[in-house]
Nucleic acid binder design. Structure first.
Ligand SMILES: [Zn+2]
Ligand SMILES: [Zn+2]
Ligand SMILES: [Zn+2]
Ligand SMILES: [Zn+2]
Lengths: 165, 165
DNA sequence: AACTGATATGTTATATTATAACAAATTAGT
DNA sequence: ACTAATTTGTTATAATATAACATATCAGTT
């Protein structure tokens, strides 16, 4: 376990990554006495197919393949559940969703969104959050929810890009 | 001129506020040799009717009152122009738009969005931005665009709320 | 096992947000 | 006046999201 979360490298073992995420979700839901139903689980698995943010209607298209009756509400209700349980995050600037690895505790995060490979890295960004808290108390503002999203080019794309284009 | 931007108080002279914003926009566009056409100006004025974030289709409804031919594209094109010129900001978490007072220079900002009165305060948040920059260089991430949006309760609503609800 | 209330899903319809594509009009510079 | 570039008009449609109500399933109790 490193000091801070690594961005998912292009060569990491993502099968293990996804499997672990689902296992954690199973455990969390059991502990909380909430139901990770088949539909909710399927949506979570689809989201975890990559570290790219997934759009609701892309999820719907994929759901339809295994669940002919799937409708927008099917997906959006599953997403609401997963959001409530902190198992996924909504990427506001993309209208899309990513899986969360640190669902155990309530937390805040920075999202680094790569414009090249479209992967999204979630980072706790403790220092940033401290600075935000300071700013908010100066402003006498009581926070309920924070969305901190940075779009740009990730380290792997920076390394491999010079020749591209 | 205070050290940091004041959140727009419920009692501030907003007519002056809006007038000044439009004047600045006029000047900026003139300097840059871009056209603040009637439509674009109208959209900007409508956005500046308050410090609440305004939705594109609310703008459209209002535009239709004075410009019968207004269509979605009418509004979205004006919004694109105003965004390009930095005269407005998009609030990602609301799919809505607010006027910007510091359009002269390219800048980054925190948006404090009040869930009670729906006003949006823009703050430079220098310390926050410094912390973000540090975090990004740690992550070896090259930023192109930053969206930092905090939803919560503003100071005026905190003061007046205790009796409400 | 049947009953019951709560939770989850099915289904239809519609609301909201945003863009594409092409034609016509206007503007700025010559 | 001519021309190229920019802006606007117009139609159509794509993409994102929610409302409302019926039905089904689940968990706990009798
Ligand atoms: Zn992975
Ligand atoms: Zn997370
Ligand atoms: Zn004002
Ligand atoms: Zn601004």
């Amino acid at each position: 376990m490193s000091a801070y979360i690594e961005s998912p490298s292009p060569t990491h073992n993502h099968d293990a990554c996804r499997t672990k995420a689902i296992q954690i979700a199973d455990r969390i839901c059991a502990e909380r006495g909430v139901q990770l139903t088949t539909i909710r689980r399927q949506v979570l698995e689809l989201i975890w197919n990559s570290h790219k943010a997934t759009k609701a209607y892309d999820l719907l298209d994929q759901m339809k393949l295994v669940q002919h009756s799937a409708k927008p509400a099917t997906v959006y209700r599953a997403l609401d559940f997963l959001l409530d349980q902190g198992l996924i995050h909504r990427v506001e600037s993309l209208n899309a969703f990513i899986g969360c690895t640190c669902s155990e505790q309530k937390h805040e995060q920075l999202l680094l969104i790569c414009l090249q490979c479209h992967e999204v890295e979630e980072r706790p960004g403790k220092r940033v959050m401290q600075a935000v808290s300071k700013e908010l108390s100066q402003a006498e503002f009581t926070p309920h929810h924070k969305a901190i999203e940075i779009q740009g080019i990730c380290k792997y794309c920076t390394q491999s890009e010079p020749n591209a284009m």
